[in-house]
């Protein structure tokens, strides 16, 4: 092969490699139980389903209970994507019509699978549970308030594990809260109260929309001792952060949680918040730029020095 051809092959390789890498990243491994689950999703991903009525001999078309409609796309993007439906639900669901008593089936809780498992130790599920039991979600509601109220096992994504930007994480995590707190129907599933307007109860926040799109609800509504992985102790509203400077300061509480997931080493090395959130968010008072500060001190010092020297010469004149 001539040198010229080698160069062309090299160019082709250089051009194609990034596309190949992108493609391989996008095409995750196929879900392990995809084929098995097709049977369930055939009805449970539809608003309407049809079945052969053995009594009448006709094909019936019925509306699916909206609470039992799941998106296969969301499921296969979620953390439980390699599960079969019957890993968590009774195998008896495989027959149709489903037996009436199956609706009384006891659902698994997070800890039933994740508790005491060293594989999941870093997520501190046991501490999460402890914190949850201290929270208003647990203390002010019945035992019916469980993990699934907020974390839908059929679609839950671990946002902090991937390449998601902070704004994407904020949006996803806030949707978890908004699911009930901005939705009257869901809110009244566990409360007889009329759902208050989020905008009204947060009227003390300037730029309400900006705050809601930039900061997770749990930053202000959970115990300050909680870390990124454990933020489950939802405090009574009276104890939520209302003091602006708790976020808008050099020692911002935001550093204790959300931004922690970013490169801590980099932050430590550079010693200023910008290293973490330069491209993600701006928090007045929190992310003063170290280099700009240094530059300003130097310019200020030199100006002052110049004035002092000039004054001395004027005095000596």
């Amino acid at each position: 092969m001539t040198k010229h051809k080698w160069m062309l092959w090299g160019m082709l390789f250089a051009i194609c490699t990034p596309f190949a890498l992108i493609a391989s990243d996008e095409t995750r491994e196929a879900p392990l139980r995809f084929e098995e689950n097709k049977h369930c999703f055939q009805c449970h991903s539809q608003k309407f389903y049809t079945y052969e009525n053995e009594v009448t001999g006709k094909t019936d078309r019925k509306a699916m209970n909206p609470n039992f409609v799941y998106s296969p796309e969301a499921f296969y993007e979620g953390v439980h994507r390699n599960f079969a439906c019957t890993d968590c639900h009774s195998p008896d669901y495989e027959t149709f019509p489903h037996q009436a008593e199956l609706r009384f089936e006891e659902m698994y809780q997070c800890l039933d699978c994740h508790g005491g498992d060293p594989t999941y130790a870093k997520y501190n599920f046991e501490v999460v549970e402890e914190e949850f039991h201290k929270s208003v979600h647990s203390t002010r509601h019945s035992e019916d308030f469980n993990c699934w109220m907020c974390h839908n096992p059929h679609s839950y994504k671990r946002m902090t594990a991937g390449d998601h930007s902070i704004s994407e994480i904020v949006k996803y995590h806030n949707q978890t809260c908004m699911g009930c707190h901005a939705d009257s129907y869901n809110f009244q599933r566990i409360s007889d109260d009329v759902k208050p307007s989020l905008q009204n109860i947060h009227s003390f926040l300037p730029n309400f929309e900006l705050h809601f799109s930039s900061v997770r609800c749990i930053e202000c509504h959970t115990s300050k001792l909680d870390t990124l992985w454990v933020k489950h102790n939802i405090l009574p509203k009276e104890e939520a952060v209302r003091n602006c400077v708790e976020c808008h300061s050099t020692n911002t509480l935001l550093m204790g949680s959300l931004y922690k997931y970013q490169n801590l080493a980099s932050r430590k090395e550079r010693g200023f918040l910008n290293s973490v959130i330069l491209n993600e968010a701006y928090v007045i008072g929190a992310n003063t730029n170290k280099f700009m500060n240094l530059g300003s001190y130097i310019i200020f010092g030199l100006t002052l020095l110049g004035i002092i020297i000039h004054t001395i010469f004027r005095l000596k004149k």
């Binding site: 400077v245 300061s249 020692n251 008072g285």
Partner: peptide, 11 residues
């Protein structure tokens, strides 16, 4: 230069 421990004036 806001700081939660010392503020000359409320933020």
């Amino acid at each position: 230069n806001a700081n939660v421990d010392s503020m000359l004036l409320r933020f």
